[in-house]
């Protein structure tokens, strides 16, 4: 047998091994998602009585979905919209603020810059439990608790975004900026037209990171909001979960609601994946 052949065989074995390993990993990552898909077609009784990875004898997905969106006058729909509102607006403003700040820190020298940056980095490390309650009392002094603003405003701050933005702004070649200056462009113009365009991947990364962070946030809305019509999905589903002790149908609603909310966000993430990934490339390696 020639050497060439042998190498080809090795390659084939390698290919099969890699594919098998990936298939195994895929099964692992899909398992809970498959489970929730099947579970969302079941009645509360069947949820516990039938096998987890197949349908029950009487699938009722459509009925469950109808109940999900009609329960308490369609409040689930409001929760989805609220989550989109908090995450969308919060992440948008957070991105603008942190990109500008990171850029300012990277491109200019000013007094106390490193101390300022150090404090911001410290912010990444502060646990949410430290901030939530004190924030309630502070926001209450300006009568904001219980409003959309009480969740939106704190979500608009992303210290991690400043960190990423600083690194990326630093990577913009000095010559490009200087050339723009010689052309007579002002600092704000340079930032808003030239710099941001070069930083698009980083900007997308910051936006999506903050979007997911807000989407997953549980403690802040729990502390701030009373009115269920302003709840985001996470809080709403937890509310229903606590009601399973009165009416078991809520168990099914929680499962179907989880499936729907997971797929809304997965849909958003996957459709933006190419930009997300591009952002990561730059995010982690460019200094």
């Amino acid at each position: 047998m020639s050497r060439e052949h042998e190498r080809e065989r090795n390659v084939d074995i390698g290919r099969i091994g890699v594919t098998l390993a990936l298939l195994f990993a895929a099964f692992y990552f899909l398992l809970p998602i498959l489970w929730v898909l099947f579970a969302s077609t079941k009645s509360p009784g069947d949820l516990f009585a039938t096998g987890g990875l197949w349908f029950s004898d009487e699938p009722q997905f459509i009925y469950n979905l109808q109940r999900l969106f009609s329960e308490s006058n369609g409040i689930f729909g409001a929760w989805v919209l609220n989550s989109l509102l908090y995450s969308g607006v919060g992440a948008l403003v957070a991105t603008v603020l942190s990109v500008a700040c990171g850029y300012g820190i990277a491109r200019y020298r000013f007094f106390g810059k490193e101390a300022f940056f150090g404090a911001i980095l410290g912010g990444v490390l502060v646990p949410a439990t430290v901030i939530a309650l004190p924030l309630y009392f502070l926001l209450n002094t300006v009568n904001l608790t219980g409003t959309y603003w009480s969740v939106l405003l704190p979500s608009m701050v992303s210290p991690f975004g400043v960190y990423l933005a600083r690194i990326h702004s630093g990577a913009i070649p000095e010559e490009v900026i200087e050339a723009a200056r010689l052309d007579g462009a002002g600092e704000v113009r340079i930032f808003s037209t030239i710099a941001t365009r070069m930083m698009v991947p980083a900007i997308v990364t910051i936006f999506l990171f903050q979007f997911v962070t807000i989407w997953n946030n549980y403690l802040l809305p729990l502390v701030m909001l009373n009115d269920t019509s302003k709840f985001p999905i996470t809080l709403g589903l937890t509310l229903w979960n606590s009601q399973t002790q009165r009416d078991p149908y809520f168990y099914t609603l929680v499962v179907v609601g989880s499936a729907v909310s997971a797929f809304v966000l997965i849909g958003i993430m996957v459709s933006l994946q190419r930009f997300w990934k591009a952002g990561m490339t730059a995010g982690a390696t460019k200094g």
Binding site: L81, L84, L85, G88, V89, L92, Y148, L152
Partner: peptide
């Protein structure tokens, strides 16, 4: 952003 602003 537009969706979000509309909602808000």
């Amino acid at each position: 952003a537009i969706v979000a602003l509309a909602l808000s």
